[in-house]
Simulated scan of single mutants.
Amino acid sequence: MLIDASSVAASADEIRAGAVSGIIFDMDGTIIDSMPSHAQSWVAFVQNHGIDIDVPDLMRRTTGRTGAECMRELFARDMSDEEAWQHIAEKEQLYRELFAPIFTEVAGFKAFAAQTRARGLKVGVGTAGDRHNIAFAFGHLKLPTPPDAVAGGDEGLAGKPEPAIFLEVARRMAVPPERCIVFEDAPFGIEAARRAGMRAVAICTSHDAAQLAGPHVLAAARNYHELIESKFLERLHVEPA
């Protein structure tokens, strides 16, 4: 069942408000259950560099931001893109080594994605992760059909809560922003969806529904099985792009 039936299981009229042509998924914590491994990799990275910092606080301040933005926040100084991405390459290699042996999708994702396509919706991915993490994730997921569009955090786009990544995915899918629904697990991503003029669904793997609330949030669920059971997709007004 959904987390909060009173606010999450929105009425058919609420969900149908406005046609939907595209679904945009964040990646980490939304498609794949990777956030604990990201936290572990941050711990290892700061230890390697002799940095004394509260890692959970760092993640609250950076989850959804690009790698370069994260490193500038961590080191608390300006640095070139080249230096920033050298650091993020080290950190993300640690992450992939930690997560690869226990790689897991957010429960029900592939089934939900298949149903999304079956209803004629385009599927996009908008992540602050870089191309290496994107390739890693989709190499392990082995989706039968790749996303229609992907935008990542190493393409020169501003990280979340800025809307640039989601707007670029919508552009590449040729879907107007107002016809997109974003699936997100982090407050910065939920806010980025709002700024993009998109509706959102909260995936509560790393934050609770209250932390991911907003007037544009249609539903909140712990995983995709809950959304399938609630017939979320069946209650959308789908208009193919």
Rank of each mutant, 00 (worst) to 15 (best):
F138A: 03
G139D: 13
H140E: 14
H140T: 00
H140Q: 15
K142N: 14
K142Q: 15
K142I: 07
K142E: 15
K142F: 02
K142C: 08
L143I: 09
L143A: 15
P144E: 15
P144G: 11
P147V: 05
P147C: 03
P147F: 10
D148M: 09
D148W: 01
D148H: 14
D148V: 05
D148Q: 07
A149T: 09
A151H: 13
A151V: 07
A151E: 12
G152R: 11
G152V: 08
G153N: 13
E155L: 13
E155R: 07
G156C: 13
G156D: 13
G156T: 10
L157G: 12
G159L: 09
G159Q: 13
K160C: 11
P161C: 08
E162V: 06
E162H: 15
P163A: 08
A164W: 09
A164C: 13
I165Y: 05
L167P: 10
L167K: 06
E168S: 11
E168W: 11
V169S: 09
R172P: 09
R172S: 01
M173W: 06
M173Q: 09
A174K: 10
A174D: 15
V175R: 04
V175I: 11
P176S: 04
P176D: 06
P176H: 00
P177I: 02
E178K: 03
R179L: 03
R179Y: 04
R179G: 00
C180L: 00
C180G: 01
V182M: 00
F183A: 01
E184A: 00
A186M: 05
A186K: 02
P187S: 04
P187M: 03
P187I: 02
P187R: 01
F188S: 07
G189E: 08
G189Y: 05
I190T: 06
